[in-house]
């Protein structure tokens, strides 16, 4: 059973991303949205950890939340897929369970 995990907090503010990557089963998908998109950016203190996690997880990021924060899709870590809200909905239907890391 594959799960979609959603993370909506910046790794600089909360441990949600860290906990998600620690307790999600390998093969799961992770969607970063709201302030969670900060975890998808290159050249941050967390970039290496997120890049490493891509060996175990498919990672996605919500584009509208990137643009809202004045960031650019070009700054997203290579291999993380940018999706819009339609893509968010598709991710939930393509996985069996959705778990929010609040």
């Amino acid at each position: 059973m594959a799960t979609l995990h959603t993370v909506n907090k910046s790794p600089f503010e909360r441990n949600a991303l860290e906990s998600c990557l620690r307790l999600a089963k390998a093969g799961s998908a992770v969607l970063l949205f709201e302030d969670g998109v900060i975890g998808a950016m290159r050249n941050t203190r967390f970039s290496d950890k997120v890049t490493q996690a891509m060996n175990d997880f498919s990672i996605y990021v919500l584009g509208p939340d990137i643009q809202a924060r004045g960031l650019d899709n070009d700054k997203v870590i290579d291999g993380i897929q940018v999706v819009d809200y339609n893509g968010f909905v598709d991710l939930t239907t393509e996985h069996d369970t959705v778990q929010s890391w609040l």
Partner: peptide, 16 residues
């Protein structure tokens, strides 16, 4: 941790 990963993965509905 390893056991908890399995326990969580088996669930149908997860409320956080």
């Amino acid at each position: 941790r390893e056991d908890l990963v399995k326990i969580i993965d088996e669930q149908d509905v997860v409320l956080s």
